[in-house]
Design a protein around this nucleic acid. Structure first.
Lengths: 142, 142
DNA sequence: TTTATAAGTCTACAAATGTAAACTAAAGGT
DNA sequence: ACCTTTAGTTTACATTTGTAGACTTATAAA
């Protein structure tokens, strides 16, 4: 019943974050840790774990008890993929400004910034004068 | 029945993009335009318009027929807000890298890049050496 | 004026999501 | 060997989302 490629929901994402950080985890660990930030019953967390397995984002070590849940995708990959999806659903013309807005409000490390600057310098060389809005389908005026 | 503050779904977002671009639009216009990119029945689009109104993202000019639907939020604001939500749900430590990854793959105009560079230069001055992971709740090790 | 068209409203229904109780069974304690 | 605890499985149920048909009625055409 593993229907691949459904997106993670926000609740599922929360669970994944703790598993990603621990590397792998038992349901007990997750339940105990999540109790600190979410008001979820243990049942809810178990349901979420099962759904994450069905969606293909988690596997387990096969134990029938005290089973270890293991991510099938790296946190970083999940993050870029999610971010990509979001960005791709937005107007290509405006997305640069929106990204700038967001970047300006979040906390970035010095290293992050240097890296970002590096990428931008590179990109500037081949950057187009401007990017067209792609909110409308082609030839919509016919 | 206007329950404010529910998020726009991806389908609703598609509709909004065309209305944002037109400034305001009738259902007929939207139906005609969407036919180019989506395989939605006119009914589906009407449902989506109603839902967008219920969620508070659209108003209308009051006409009983050939009504004009009007956004209550600017595209840019919706974009930053959505992006923000996404970014805020992610590990603070890794999000910089993820943003860099995404930025490097999308098309940005020269002007966008200059703007981004400007912001980064500014940020660098006060940027912390590094950002801690916030995937775990506080004191989770107790 | 009658009628056809289509804009807007209602109803519908399956799948996904948030949330969790009930049940089954493994494993540790006595 | 039996009971208690609890990990994992099943079942449940309301809300949201994707998708759209049916219905009502205003308006343009005949």
């Amino acid at each position: 019943m593993i229907k691949d490629k459904q997106n993670m929901t926000t609740s599922e994402w929360e669970i994944m974050r703790v598993i990603w950080t621990l590397g792998e985890a038992t349901s007990r660990q997750i339940i105990r840790i999540m109790a600190r930030k979410k008001d979820w019953s243990p049942s809810t967390i178990k349901t979420l774990l099962t759904r994450l397995q069905n969606k293909g984002y988690l596997t387990d070590n096969g134990a029938i008890r005290d089973r270890l849940y293991i991510p099938t995708i790296a946190e970083h990959d999940a993050m870029t993929s999610t971010l990509h999806q979001t960005v791709n659903s937005m107007c290509a013309m405006c997305v640069g400004t929106a990204m700038a807005d967001v970047l300006s409000t979040i906390t970035l490390s010095q290293h992050d910034i240097l890296h970002l600057q590096d990428i931008l310098t590179q990109k500037l060389v081949t950057a187009p004068e401007n990017v067209a809005c792609d909110c409308m389908p082609n030839n919509w005026e016919d």
